[in-house]
């Protein structure tokens, strides 16, 4: 089986690495205003940078419904995207993670049948990459999550998909309202820097450039 576009990335001096680095499909969308998904008002969230991106609809091999998992079933973003808190890379959840539930849940649904087929053939699902940063950028999920989730006592005491999602949403949009992910934030240097300025992130070039 294969893993991500390792090779390719490295042939592209201007972009980083191998897709491996910044694949952040998933996660949730911060729309704290939305009534049924509101987080407790006392939790402090990062001041989200301004700017929007008119992202494309990306067709995935399986139309993964983020909304059903998060908004309906209230599964925490970090349950599946577990690498995000352990690595700079959020990664794509391994198929075994999906099958942990879906070997028994909703096995009759067409998308699950698709998934099961991949699993049984021992083939990885060829997901399409949605979020990415260039090759020369060092971005680490684990530190951002530490600062905005795990060092936020109030949030940790109320840990749920609805408290975590607004943090993820700062960069990825609120995936509680999407099926497959769509890029709706610019993810440009200026956008990153404005967030660093508002939230006290480092201003040193080499903190992010590599």
């Amino acid at each position: 089986m294969r893993w991500i576009q390792l090779d390719r990335a490295k042939r592209e001096p201007a972009r980083q690495g191998c897709g491996a680095l910044l694949v952040a499909l998933a996660l949730v969308w911060a729309m704290p205003a939305s009534a049924d998904t509101a987080a407790p008002a006392s939790i402090k969230y990062p001041v989200a940078p301004e700017g929007a991106h008119a992202g494309k609809d990306v067709a995935q091999p399986i139309e993964f419904p983020h909304d059903i998992h998060t908004a309906v079933n209230k599964i925490n973003c970090l349950y599946c995207h577990t690498y995000a808190r352990r690595s700079k890379v959020a990664g794509i959840p391994p198929t075994s993670k999906c099958m942990g539930c879906h070997s028994v849940i909703a096995t009759d649904k067409p998308r699950i049948k698709q998934l099961t087929e991949y699993w049984e053939k021992k083939q990885p699902v060829p997901w399409k990459k949605v979020h990415d940063v260039p090759d020369f950028v060092h971005f680490t999920h684990e530190k951002h999550l530490k600062k905005f989730i795990f060092d936020n006592d109030e949030l940790v005491q109320n840990l749920s998909v609805d408290t975590v999602a607004p943090v993820c949403a700062a960069c990825h949009g609120d995936l509680r309202t999407m099926t497959v992910a769509k890029k709706i934030k610019p993810m440009t240097m200026g956008w990153c820097v404005s967030c660093h300025e508002k939230n006290g992130g480092p201003g040193d070039c080499w903190a992010c450039h590599k």
């Binding site: 090779d7 042939r11 592209e12 001096p13 201007a14 980083q16 090759d135 020369f136 060092h138 590599k210």
Partner: peptide, 22 residues
Amino acid sequence: YPESAWPAPLNLQLNPDITVRD
């Protein structure tokens, strides 16, 4: 250099933690 210095599959050795300069 990316094309000449790392003809496939030599490029698979490249360290993803640091950029390849152009």
